[in-house]
């Protein structure tokens, strides 16, 4: 019996892991500037002079605890994320899906059409992955010489082929518009607003 259980666990464990990875889990807590890690603060110090609506967050997700700054710089919304070791993870720039021109729109659209029967983009962010050698961010968007790669993170409401279920997904595309990651976003109930 014990051997059978181990066998079942071994067979199903990878599938369980896969299922867990496909769901986005993220918990965000607003913190004060004083509670924001010093090393991370030093990295963004030059930006804060010209930034507006600066807010600091502690974020818990599958990878552990991260830190995030959200701000408005030169009329554009950015979020700058740091890992638990206060290393710069990425910078995300909020774009307008309908207006954005410098995105691989055709490739992204083709990939989404392959996955979904119907879809609507509700949010898009340009994700700048920066070189680990970056000591301080001087301006936003980051300058070309410190960018390692660019991704596009989309939040999409969609209905997959052969599935009559509408759900929200987070899709990550590389700079050529090829799909890297797809996760389901668990939304809170909105019955309190509807009924």
């Amino acid at each position: 019996m014990q051997k059978l259980l181990i066998l079942v666990a071994v067979i199903f464990f990878p599938f369980l892991m896969l299922a867990q990875q496909n769901v986005k889990y993220e918990r965000e807590k607003k913190i004060s500037a004083e509670d924001f890690p010093d090393a991370a603060m030093q990295l963004i110090l030059p930006l804060l002079e010209n930034a507006k609506a600066v807010k600091f967050y502690q974020e818990t997700n599958q990878d552990g605890i991260n830190y995030e700054v959200k701000l408005k710089y030169d009329k554009t919304h950015y979020s700058i994320e740091f890992d638990s070791l206060q290393r710069l993870k990425d910078v995300e720039e909020l774009l307008d899906w309908k207006k954005a021109t410098d995105i691989p729109r055709a490739a992204i659209k083709r990939n989404m059409d392959d996955t979904f029967r119907k879809q609507k983009v509700t949010r898009i962010q340009k994700q700048y992955n920066l070189k680990s050698s970056v000591k301080q961010l001087q301006s936003l968007p980051p300058s070309e010489d410190i960018i390692l790669s660019i991704n596009y993170e989309l939040e999409v409401e969609g209905e997959m082929h052969r599935k009559n279920v509408l759900q929200f997904y987070e899709l990550l595309f590389d700079e050529n518009g090829e799909l890297i990651q797809q996760r389901v976003i668990q939304k809170n109930i909105t019955d309190n607003l509807i009924f």
């Binding site: 918990r27 965000e28 607003k30 959200k70 309190n192 607003l193």
Partner: peptide, 22 residues
């Protein structure tokens, strides 16, 4: 017309309060 907004943070997480009006 109804809206809700988390008291803390930019998204509502479990264990948190939110403001609601309509």
């Amino acid at each position: 017309f109804t809206f809700d907004r988390p008291i803390s943070g930019s998204q509502l997480d479990s264990g948190e309060w939110y403001f609601v009006a309509g």
